[in-house]
């Protein structure tokens, strides 16, 4: 981060023990509740399943994963789910933020709050409400949209072709308003002078958007995408309520965390930990990408 060399002045502080006093509480909790469980996970993944006396089995759990179709299915589902939610939410919230910026000033807080409401609701409640919308035949979606355009009612949560789409729509419903809020906050931080200067060159709103708003919002957009990616991979509650902890028909909605949870239900702690550890390279790769991005764009 602050890699450039700074002249040593006493006034910039941080001499002696001060930095470590400031960092100590964080590092203490970090090692106790994050580093140790992580190492514990690695150790656990090398041990046998079951509750009683566990023994060291080496990479056996990983070999088992390599032949586990459901494991690959769950990773694949999680990837699709996560990417789809980012691809849908980011442009939509950009558009909504733009619309909100150009509504009547007095209505704005109310409209924003309305859109935000799903983000404030516990995911389990959201899932239940969603269940009503997505219900087999009597659900709102079927009654208002699917049947009137002449299609057969879709059994959203039983038909393997639609389960993942249902989960994605739920995430879109949950996060779009919240991300809109972030983007609006970002838009309000852009100095008005930039737009006034641009008006001298062109009056096209689209050009203003492409050449001023979008570049100015890049740190917001990167932040949002990272947040959604991490949240997508760690989604548990929504899928747990909608599908009762299972993967749904033909595992079409099996996400990685749900699979980890399923393993722990049968006390297969070794396999569960192996799944978690096997995702670490993916995380490291994204970490590397973020560091590169920070260097270049932020």
């Amino acid at each position: 981060m602050e890699s450039r060399a700074q002249p040593v002045i006493k006034a910039t502080g941080g001499v002696g023990w001060a930095p470590f006093i400031f960092l100590f509480p964080f590092l203490f909790f970090l090692s106790l509740f994050w580093v140790l469980p992580l190492l514990g996970g690695v150790k656990m993944s090398l041990e046998s399943n079951g509750l009683g006396a566990v023994e060291f089995v080496g990479f056996k759990n990983y070999y088992a994963l390599a032949n586990d179709e459901r494991y690959f299915k769950s990773i694949c589902n999680s990837l699709i789910y996560t990417l789809a939610s980012v691809v849908l939410i980011v442009p939509m919230s950009l558009w909504l933020a733009h619309l909100l910026q150009s509504t009547f000033r007095r209505l704005r807080p109310m409209l924003t709050f309305g859109l935000l409401l799903p983000a404030l609701t516990p995911p389990s409640v959201l899932a239940t409400l969603f269940l009503m919308v997505f219900h087999g035949r009597e659900g709102l979606l079927n009654q208002l949209f699917i049947i009137p355009i002449g299609l057969a009612p879709i059994n959203w949560l039983k038909d393997p072709n639609f389960i993942l789409l249902g989960l994605v729509l739920q995430t879109v419903w949950r996060w779009t308003g919240f991300m809109t809020f972030f983007i609006m906050a970002g838009m309000e931080g852009i100095p008005k002078a930039y737009y006034e200067a641009a008006k001298l060159a062109t009056s096209s709103r689209w050009d203003h958007f492409i050449h001023i708003t979008l570049p100015q919002l890049r740190s917001v957009l990167i932040f949002i995408s990272i947040y959604l990616l991490v949240d997508g991979f760690s989604l548990f509650s929504g899928a747990f309520i909608l599908l009762g902890g299972s993967g749904g028909t033909a595992d079409a909605g099996l996400l990685t965390i749900s699979y980890v949870f399923q393993k722990t239900r049968f006390f297969e702690y070794g396999s569960a930990a192996a799944i978690s550890v096997s995702l670490l390279p993916l995380m490291l790769l994204s970490l590397y990408t973020i560091i590169l991005l920070r260097r270049r764009y932020i």
Partner: peptide, 27 residues
């Protein structure tokens, strides 16, 4: 403040964001 290995600490913080707690809930 200035301290040694600031960059390394910062990478650890980023890693903390990227590895969701739910993933290592069992250990």
């Amino acid at each position: 403040l200035k301290f040694h290995w600031k960059n390394i600490y910062f990478v650890i913080v980023l890693a903390l964001i990227l590895v969701p707690r739910q993933l290592f809930a069992v250990p």
